[in-house]
Design a protein around this nucleic acid. Structure first.
Length: 470
DNA sequence: ATGCATGAGGG
DNA sequence: CCTCATGCATG
């Protein structure tokens, strides 16, 4: 057991979830290291629906990017929403898809509520016609993305958490040691009067046990981190002088909000300009792989607050990391949090959801939706803890409900075949699905769902996902 | 932590 | 049918 000493390193350098996500790496990987996560085999392959003679593959939606109307096909619709501005990543499948624009784009963009658009310099349109076409398959969000080939992310300093982390052999964070609360000043005092309410709450020394009663960490008497709500996630850019200084609204509003409708209110704190154009080479313009699929849309109709997702991504990453830390400090498991959440008012979420949130294996949209909920719950939980109350885990038995279909278990061979097909074509037509199903001897529906899930997983974990661009 | 399933919303 | 957000069940 050991309290590893690389905390600082880990914290600062690796922005986020990666910590948990890439166990093996945490310890070793130094700052700018470039890891190549597991997406492996898919990325290499390339599937492409060549528009040429590829035949009538897409039954319904193939709307290729031929939108005469806008005429600006090769152009990006404008940073309407997300921008992948962060991250420094290996060339992996990053490509910019010139996105065909969604019909709606223009309108929506316009009313972004005053939020200055974004920073990420978007770059050269390397749009490959073909690629674009391929991707264009997704209905709604076509226009939304343009992943700038450029990446480079200065990294947000994690300022709120100076404590030490307890990590297990795999490098996963399992607990925290008492930390010192950062004084307001440290937290990059925002020009604006952001009430830095930091509070240190005494925590009784205790052992953190997991559901199985195993000790997963110890907490020395110390302080739990604030709760000022946003503190941890606070103001990016501590160092003013860095990039250009003017902008940077330290906004940092409270958190609660976020609900559909309310326009960009809470949104972007974003110090625009953070990253800027780093000349990182990459941009691979080749292999249109699966990434196309992933990238093709990505943002759905986010009403408002998603435009600057790039920046917000950082904020959420911070929160996710913090959430886990604080959850552990409370000595709760993901399951318990899920149950507690279910018991209380508001949306209920399962252990799976908590897990995915912490790892950020979810879409930015989901993360945004979840964050307020978790934030609120966490605050209350910590509150209750202070006041001694323990019960927060009431259970509310759920109804049995209908029986689910038994989970299909594919044989390794079948999976191999499925993956092979997927690499070739991630979106097989109905007929193809049928064929594949027969070939592998599985129910057609099962195969269809497999493809759906495969696509979804790829999207959520791909490096193209804002959160996974460390 | 993840793989497969479900269901809502859209076309 | 697809995508998405989620959850149950499993490895």
């Amino acid at each position: 057991g050991q309290v590893t000493g690389q905390q600082a390193l880990a914290l600062v350098t690796i922005p986020t979830a990666t910590l948990a996500a890439l166990p093996g790496l945490t310890a070793a990987a130094p700052a700018g290291a470039i890891f190549k996560p597991p997406v492996a085999n898919l990325t290499e392959s390339q599937f492409q629906f060549s528009g040429a003679q590829s035949q009538p593959q897409f039954p319904q939606k193939i709307s290729l990017p031929q939108f005469p109307q806008s005429g600006s096909l090769p152009q990006f619709p404008h940073p309407k929403k997300l921008q992948f501005c962060s991250g420094q990543l290996p060339g992996v499948g990053f490509m910019d898809l010139g996105s065909p624009r969604t019909p709606v784009a223009a309108g929506t963009v316009g009313q972004s509520g005053g939020v200055p658009v974004s920073h990420c310099p978007s770059p050269d349109p390397i749009s490959t016609p073909q690629i674009t076409a391929a991707l264009g398959t997704q209905p709604q969000l076509l226009g939304s993305l343009s992943a700038p080939p450029v990446i480079a992310n200065p990294l947000p300093s994690v300022q709120g958490i100076p404590g030490q982390l307890l990590t297990n052999a795999q490098g996963q964070v399992i607990g925290t040691l008492p930390w010192v609360v950062t004084p307001p000043g440290v937290a990059a005092a925002p020009p604006t009067p952001a009430p830095p309410s930091l509070q240190v709450t005494p925590v009784t020394p205790q052992l953190l046990l997991n559901a199985q009663g195993q000790v997963i960490a110890t907490l020395a008497t110390g302080a739990t981190l604030t709760t000022g709500a946003t503190l941890a996630t606070a103001p990016p850019t501590p160092a003013p002088s860095k990039k250009n200084g003017p902008a940077e609204p330290p906004v940092k509003s409270e958190v609660q909000p976020i609900q559909p409708a309310p326009a960009g209110v809470v949104t972007s704190p974003a110090p625009v300009t953070k990253v800027a154009s780093s000349p990182v080479p990459i941009t691979c313009a080749e292999t249109p792989t699966v990434s196309q699929l992933v990238s093709s849309e990505s943002l759905g109709a986010l009403g408002e607050g998603e435009r600057d997702l790039g920046c917000m991504g950082t904020e959420i990453r911070e929160f996710a990391k913090n959430f886990k830390l604080r959850r552990l400090s409370l000595g709760l498991t993901q399951t318990q949090v899920g149950q507690a959440l279910t018991a209380t008012e508001g949306p209920a979420y399962s252990q799976s959801a908590i897990c995915r949130f912490e790892k950020l294996d979810i879409t930015p949209k989901s993360a945004q939706k979840l964050k307020p909920v978790l934030e609120k719950w966490l605050r209350e939980a910590e509150q209750r803890q202070r006041e001694g109350q323990q019960h927060l885990l009431e259970f509310v038995g759920g109804e049995p409900g209908k029986k689910r279909k038994r989970r299909t278990s594919f044989t390794p061979q079948a999976l191999e075949a499925l993956n092979a097909h997927f690499e070739r074509n991630a979106l097989p037509t109905g007929a193809e699905i049928t064929r594949i199903a027969q070939e592998l001897r599985y129910e057609r529906e099962v195969v269809r769902v497999w493809f759906c899930n495969r696509r979804q997983t790829l999207k959520n974990t791909s490096k193209l996902n804002v959160f996974h661009v460390p």
